[in-house]
């Protein structure tokens, strides 16, 4: 073959010109009908009235959003006060997802850097080691974490035996456990995009900086991090977004007291206590937050390309 990556036909190949619409149509139909339309219907449902056995009555209502933000007392006729319950659940989800992102970045960046600077043969092995957990069932990984950090689980047993602690650390069903679960779940998502960015990094820049007597630290903060920033941002989004809507970590590791958005939404669709319009509204709010993050990301990427 005449060249490597990038020398291919790219977007100019026209072998099947005229068939574009026909070929793309199945993807449009499947994703359109079974994802875009459902999100539209979900938006409609968030403005309907709740039915008591789960489901909805087709009557316009703002009750779901009202319930989310305002407390009108037991009979609904008190003057509205701000309802903090759900706002706090969202707030907790945001900072737990943020902290998971920060922790993943602190360990993911050195890992990505280290792997990208290995010789080609060992690099493949390291990369493979990071990729495998990425594809391992999230449920099983969360269960493994739950097993590991139980009060009488292997972690506590080991720490007790080695004498590091004298009493078991109670982690399970605390926010710390959820935090560990989120960090553990999405850590590979941070490493891979940063790795891709570091792999393209031109080391002549580091040499130039060293020639001009820049210290290692200055080179890192002034040259390397700004250059690989797109990879860092991509990694942060890939960790933050799924952490924000995570269900398994808060449900299996956090118990009933450490709700995140995912558990709140899930609860609205389970059994008679559920509230479909409220669940739909909470899902819409979550989706809007994610869209804001993605739009911010797309704009920063555009600016990068424009610069």
């Amino acid at each position: 073959m005449a060249g490597g990556i990038g020398s291919g036909p790219g977007k100019s190949a026209r072998t099947y010109a005229g068939f574009g619409v026909t070929l793309i149509l199945p993807a449009w139909l499947v994703i359109g009908i079974f994802l875009v339309v459902p999100i539209g219907i979900m938006l409609v449902y968030s403005f309907l009235t709740k039915e008591f056995r789960g489901g909805v009555i087709w009557e316009f209502s703002l009750a779901a959003y009202d319930q989310f933000f305002f407390d009108r007392g037991l009979f609904g006729d008190d003057p509205p006060k701000i309802e903090w319950t759900y706002i706090l659940i969202f707030w907790r989800s945001i900072w737990q997802a943020g902290l998971a992102t920060l922790l993943s970045l602190l360990i993911g960046f050195p890992t990505a850097w280290f792997i990208a600077t290995r010789p080609a043969s060992t690099r493949t092995i390291w990369l493979f080691l990071i990729t495998v957990p990425y594809w391992v069932n999230l449920l099983i990984r969360t269960i493994s974490m739950k097993f590991l950090i139980r009060d009488n689980g292997p972690l506590n047993t080991w720490l007790l035996e080695t004498g590091v602690i004298s009493e078991p650390i109670h982690l399970i069903n605390t926010w710390v456990a959820v935090q560990l679960g989120l960090f553990y779940s999405y850590l590979p998502f941070m490493v891979l995009p940063i790795y891709a960015a570091v792999e393209r990094y031109n080391f002549a820049l580091s040499e130039a900086a060293a020639d001009l007597y820049a210290s290692r630290f200055v080179t890192l903060t002034q040259i390397i991090i700004p250059v690989v920033k797109p990879g860092i941002i991509a990694g942060c989004i890939l960790v933050f977004v799924p952490s924000l809507g995570s269900f398994l970590a808060p449900d299996l590791l956090g118990g009933a007291k450490n709700f995140m958005i995912g558990s709140l939404i899930d609860e609205q669709f389970k059994g008679a206590a559920g509230n479909w319009p409220f669940g739909a509204a909470a899902a819409m709010i979550l989706l809007s937050m994610v869209l804001i993050v993605l739009i911010f990301y797309a704009r920063s990427q555009n600016r990068q390309e424009g610069a």
Binding site: L35, P38, I39, I41, M42, V241, P242, L244, G245, F247, I261, G262, I265, D266, F269, G279, A280, A283, L286, L287, V290
Partner: peptide, 8 residues
């Protein structure tokens, strides 16, 4: 987010 797809 997966939970949103699930609900929708």
């Amino acid at each position: 987010p997966e939970i949103v797809t699930a609900v929708a």
